[in-house]
């Protein structure tokens, strides 16, 4: 993204100054952070378009044999939920949990596995659409 190119240059520089060896990243980031940002920009918070971008990233990451970042699958799942695609959403939450066991408590909420008897998220996708900004 042109917008972020100078920042990434500086970021790379900072990594070098910090003594880190390689500019290669652990994860394939693709559109993840731009998708985060877009959800808060007027007119750009369109789940269908955003999830399509993340789907592209899934394929790209697979072809490069690089893992997707923490939160990626959960984010895609949440977008699918807003689109009413609850099966796809569940699939993504499970992928997040599989890839990162640290996410299990949080993902179980979305999967409606009640831990400590405290449900958090509603599965009512209509509600989600109304509160989407």
């Amino acid at each position: 993204m042109k917008l972020l190119s100078t920042g990434r240059w500086l970021g790379g520089l900072a990594l070098l100054l910090a003594g880190c060896q390689s500019p290669k990243t652990i994860y394939y980031w693709g559109h993840y952070e731009p998708v985060v940002y877009a959800q808060y920009q007027p007119g750009k918070n369109q789940p269908e378009k955003l999830s399509a971008l993340l789907e592209q990233d899934e394929q790209k990451a697979a072809s490069k044999n690089q893992p997707l970042p923490p939160g990626f699958h959960a984010q895609l799942g949440y977008l699918y939920a807003q689109e009413g695609k609850s099966d796809l959403a569940r699939q993504q939450y499970l992928l997040e949990k599989q890839q990162f066991p640290e996410s299990a408590v949080f993902m179980d909420r979305f999967l409606n596995i009640k831990t400590n008897g405290v449900p958090l998220v509603s599965t009512n996708t209509a509600t989600k659409n109304e509160t989407t900004h």
């Binding site: 970021g11 952070e33 985060v36 939160g71 959960a74 998220v121």
Partner: peptide, 27 residues
């Protein structure tokens, strides 16, 4: 917020999905 996940995840931590957390808390 949209630039904070990258450096922390690349430092080797599991970072919760920032937009999801934000929106769930708002809900």
């Amino acid at each position: 917020l949209s630039t904070v996940s990258f450096p922390i995840a690349e430092r080797g931590y599991y970072v919760f999905p920032v937009a999801v957390v934000d929106q769930v808390m708002k809900e």
